[in-house]
Write a protein that binds this DNA or RNA. Structure first.
Lengths: 250, 250
DNA sequence: TCCATGATGTGATTTAGATCACAAATATAT
DNA sequence: ATATATTTGTGATCTAAATCACATCATGGA
């Protein structure tokens, strides 16, 4: 073997590796598998700008990602994991507004509303997020109407579905609410009729605004009637149709 | 007097008048006293485009402006008057989401969400509205990022305040809710501690999601305790501080 | 004018679901 | 392991507010 040739080969590999690393760093958003619908309409220069003004970060299950009342300096994009959006009420009780799945921005209405975060977010699973400088983000909205349009579509959909949930909830009795929550997990969050609840019964109750005791009772009633099978935090929907009927009829 | 000269003068006046009329028609948005914050950032060409693709219309008190379930072909801007935003529940009961004051667009989230109107609107006072073609409107969003930004700000604020109301309402007992509604009229809608309720007790109750009877009882209790003075539909807030306390404490 | 229809006020009754008060099971720390 | 805290399940009260059932009081049309 030729030592010089060996070195050359190693050198080449190293060079390629470093080049790839550097390229990835500079183009991290270009190659991102988890890019948002909105960012997908940005041009190459605009993506470069985002790349050099964003930062990835990880959160362990249970950690707080963002606290209500704080000032918005960066917009947060959820690349992976599930987070809960909530507000801390008076005392111990918290109100869970919704769960946020990956590929969503956190707290957009707060950014455009008054720059103060109105909701808190914490990780229900390990989460990967991207911080993007808000001036860069706002600049892109003003510079690229198509980007702005996508952001509008996403905030509008969120707004409609939030209000929809609130309105229908206030008309529903407790059975309807529990059914609604189960369907929310099965159809929207996990898209499967079998899943693990990502939190305690107390939090389940906080999500539908009933007491912990009542939520438990109804969950066990559904279980004994064979509509669902629940054991600790693992849940299987047995009779989806009936559950939907209960949710609709309230 | 010289008849010819007279005619000439009349002619000139007529000419000027017609010119003004025509000019106003072509530049109706340019001269509009009720232009939206968003439209204020449009350039002259873009305003021309809006001018020639919009149409003013009047609604009498009580008339339905827009019906939920309909497809959006035009965006509606409220130039004058007050409208109620509501959804028709099952049966007779309707849920009033909020009142909309002049200088607001109606149903923006529906436009960007899925193009189907989610809420109904009816006039609580005589209303003047402007219809704008949605393709023109969407075109402006995509073409002018600053316009899009203003629309985002306005939809975001609406979203935050709606959700805020829903969240706090669900924590409040009936006294807090009635107090909240009175403050809503005094501080936000009429900006005066004396005003006429624009609708019946039933609708007042629909706004805060309590029964008509309960709403009446609390209103009369506040009256007898000297917190407010209410006679038919005219209402005077006597003790604003106390009302705010009641609203906050729930 | 009178009748019909709807909007209001008010007491009596009912009820859904919160709250309380534990027991059992599970997880966490020492 | 043992002790301590947290999460869950379950029955027994309690209560706020809906519902029911009328009595007035307006309003508007024939």
């Amino acid at each position: 073997m030729n030592l010089a040739a060996d070195f050359k080969e190693i050198d080449t590999k190293l060079y390629r590796y470093m080049l790839k690393e550097l390229t990835q760093k500079d183009n991290k958003c270009h190659d991102c598998k988890d890019i948002s619908c909105a960012a997908a309409v940005l041009n190459s220069n605009q993506l470069d700008l985002v790349s050099s003004n964003s930062q990835e970060s990880l959160f362990k299950k249970g950690e707080v990602i963002l606290n209500e009342g704080s000032l918005t300096s960066h917009i947060i994009y959820l690349k992976a994991g599930i987070a809960k959006e909530y507000i801390k009420g008076t005392g111990e009780k918290e109100r869970i507004l919704r769960l946020v799945k990956k590929h969503s921005y956190l707290g957009l209405p707060s950014l455009f509303g008054d720059r103060i975060n109105h909701y808190s977010y914490s990780a229900l699973e390990d989460c990967k997020v991207c911080y993007i400088d808000i001036n860069v983000f706002n600049g892109l909205v003003r510079e690229n109407g198509n980007f702005a349009y996508e952001i509008l579509v996403s905030t509008s959909r969120d707004s409609l579905s939030n209000i929809n949930r609130f309105i229908h909830r206030s008309q529903k009795k407790i059975f309807g609410r529990v059914a609604e929550a189960i369907l929310y997990f099965a159809k929207i969050i996990y898209e499967s009729d079998e899943f693990e609840l990502p939190f305690s019964r107390q939090e389940f109750a906080d999500l539908i605004d009933v007491s912990r005791e009542s939520a438990t009772r109804v969950l066990l009633k559904f279980n004994s009637e064979g509509i669902i099978q629940i054991k600790d935090r693992s849940l299987l929907v047995v009779n989806m149709d009936l559950l939907e009927q209960i949710s609709r009829k309230g």
